[in-house]
Design a protein around this nucleic acid. Structure first.
Lengths: 243, 243
DNA sequence: CGAAAGATTGAGATATTTCAACTGCGGTGG
DNA sequence: CCACCGCAGTTGAAATATCTCAATCTTTCG
């Protein structure tokens, strides 16, 4: 138990370190254009000509995919140290809107200059590849949740994901403010805002989470394991898991 | 109409070209270990130490993500020219099982050797980045389908995706064999095998698709636009699309 | 303070799943 | 050779998770 907690903490500490190192490396080795954004600003929009990758220096962003028929989907959330715009490389057009959910700063890096620099500084290349690889892994996790978990468990998984993202950035995870509306969360998780609200209410009733006195967007998580076990209890036992 | 069809054909032709060029480039510039696989073989498994990326030279593969609790999820399908194992770069472990669905061949490329070679041959780097970027885009499209489309439309979208994948590889798209069971398709699309079956039956009844005389796995698609309009008719009109 | 936006909650509607029966097909062994 | 079995697929009917619609409440903000 103690060792587990320690190792998790170290895992997070090293993530903090990795992100800090990467940001430092970028500053040192490649031309950067800083850009401050406020809640609601878009860093780039779908269809716009690709030219730069963006690294989140601070703040919090959502990636919104817009289908031809007007269906709108939040396909990703990004925090400090994440790269934005990676899905624009192949097509030379950004694949979604990158929207700031809060005040923050991104560093614009010209893709061509990045490639140049990467030849001189291989660590840059590693950082880029790791960022892409991590996003792929995260996407696959999202699909797993979307396809195999019922609504309640998806919401619980979302909170755990959020807490983990904060932990990896050295922030407190026992209490935090969701910077998304129920509608945005629901969109991200493939359910309605009402379902999100009900799931959160059920979790609060079971004392898996608590709402802080001010606002229903501040969430207190007594212990993360409770979230995990709530997820399990909400999830149906799969045939494979039975033996 | 004619110009549209022409441009689409050109789009596919250039995709064929791109894939052929990439495979040629790999052969010329980086050490490759060929490996033949048969249906059911795994190229690598989740948790296994990462070392190689794999490029599909022929055949067809599914990527299966396995959650801790035994939930199993097909998170991707890959054809000739696709890269496998990209989600293993960041963690130094493969993130899922890569399972051959048919006889085929993959080219194993050591990641460290690839990076070396990429410095001498920047086109290699471009190819790798495009592959990752394309997979990200594809994942986002999947999420959009999973979250915003009803079951019938997801199945139609799946067929359209499959036909498009074949077209990009220069294969006929009016008729093809699904190499997946209803259960596998359902898993990939986040629904039960019965729902897949019903969706296909409805499409057949509406003459959007036809089953060839032998087996219900061979599918004939009279015209792709019918698939698209079936998708639209199955999808609810979103508020945003109304004005 | 009042209006607008966000959130909660209930009740009925509905899409999808679940459970079950049945079909067709391919292999295998008596 | 044919009976039999298992697997894949189809289809129906009942069960259920989630959505939709609507009322109410809270918070934010001009």
């Amino acid at each position: 138990m103690t060792t587990e907690a320690t190792s998790v903490t170290q895992g997070h500490r090293s993530a903090v370190r990795r992100i800090a190192d990467m940001l430092q490396l970028l500053q040192d080795s490649v031309p950067i254009q800083r850009r401050v954004v406020r809640a609601g600003d878009t860093v780039y929009q779908v269809g716009q000509q690709f030219g730069c990758l963006y690294v989140v220096s601070s703040g919090f962003f959502k990636m919104v995919n817009l289908s031809g028929e007007g269906r709108e989907q939040v396909v990703g959330l990004h925090f400090k140290g994440d790269w934005l715009g990676l899905d624009g490389i192949a097509t030379a057009q950004y694949g979604c809107d990158a929207v700031a959910m809060d005040t923050g700063e991104v560093w614009a890096i010209r893709y061509d200059e990045l490639l140049q620099a990467a030849i001189r500084t291989p660590a840059l290349l590693t950082a880029l590849h790791e960022a892409m690889s991590r996003e792929l892994t995260r996407d696959h996790d999202s699909m797993l949740s979307l396809c195999t978990l019922p609504a309640d468990a998806r919401v619980a998984g979302f909170l755990r994901y959020w807490a983990d993202a904060l932990a990896q950035r050295g922030l407190r995870t026992d209490q935090f403010t969701l910077r998304m509306t129920r509608a945005e969360i629901g969109n991200y998780l493939g359910m309605t805002l009402e379902s999100v609200s009900r799931a959160l209410s059920r979790m609060a009733r079971g004392d898996v989470i608590r709402f802080t006195e001010k606002g229903r967007r501040d969430i207190h998580i007594p212990q993360v394991e409770a979230l995990t076990s709530f997820m399990r209890s909400a999830a149906p036992m799969s045939a494979a898991a039975l033996h």
